[in-house]
């Protein structure tokens, strides 16, 4: 079995099994804790908890202009690499085929050249993010090992993906195997670090959305 077969086979099986295990473990470990739902009466005319939850999820997509002064870079750069990752992950045809193979659903992709360009922008943005983390006094103080591991786990698939499409550094099948292995590592790490925010943000925002909606307060 060569490296590519190992990556496409056992490594991915293992990673996805760990991903499923860890994600459910963590989500249920949180959501099955007591909810403490005894609440004072809602403000008159406040929206339903469901719409408050939705509103919380949506409103938090965009920061208040009041916080832009200090957080502009974090906000803009965060948007760039999140969108970049989303485009590269979900609109590159080989990735769509991967998803189709797993879940049976698919959608049209973007031209590969566009994906390469977005990939480069994403990589640059991620580098800017880690540079910011390592230089900003606030971020240095609040960062943990998790932040750096999660960065590496996110950056490696982008880097190996770019190397693979540009055939840099090694043979294509080696690079693509490393790419898949880096994705496997991403999946393994995902449930145990902050990457999990990709799922948790929904709950976190919705909960605060409901709390604020209940009080008639603005998020």
């Amino acid at each position: 079995m060569d490296l590519l077969d190992f990556a496409r086979g056992p490594a991915l099986y293992f990673a996805l099994a760990v991903f499923a295990l860890g994600t459910l473990w963590r989500l249920l470990g949180i959501l099955l804790l007591p909810w403490g739902l005894i609440r004072s009466p809602a403000r008159e005319g406040s929206p339903s908890p469901f719409s408050s939850a939705l509103k919380g999820i949506v409103v938090k997509l965009w920061p208040h202009k009041e916080f832009m002064a200090g957080g502009f870079f974090t906000f803009i750069n965060g948007y760039i690499f999140h969108l970049g990752l989303a485009i590269v992950v979900f609109l590159f045809v080989p990735h769509i085929l991967f998803i189709k193979n797993l879940f049976g659903i698919s959608w049209p992709g973007l031209p590969s050249n566009v994906i390469y360009a977005v990939g480069v922008i994403t990589a640059v943005s991620l580098i800017a993010a880690i540079a910011n983390r390592m230089t900003s006094p606030v971020l240095r103080l609040i960062s943990r090992v998790d932040d750096y591991i999660s960065w590496v786990m996110t950056f490696l698939p982008v880097l190996t993906g770019l190397l693979a499409v540009s055939h840099l550094g090694a043979r294509y099948e080696t690079l693509i195997a490393l790419h898949i292995l880096s994705v496997a590592a991403f999946f393994v790490w995902f449930p145990f670090g902050k990457l999990m925010h990709a799922f948790l943000f929904v709950f976190s925002r919705a909960m605060t959305g409901v709390r604020f909606g209940h009080r008639g307060a603005q998020l």
Binding site: R8, F19, A20, L24, W25, L28, L32, P94, K100
Partner: peptide
């Protein structure tokens, strides 16, 4: 080429089942 080799379903299902058990147990 970019898809995983066949035969992942069982492993993922087992992982998911274990995840549910562990999550519920932890809670």
């Amino acid at each position: 080429l970019s898809t995983a080799m066949p035969g992942m379903g069982a492993g993922i299902a087992a992982g998911a089942a274990a995840g549910v058990a562990l999550g519920a147990g932890a809670a």
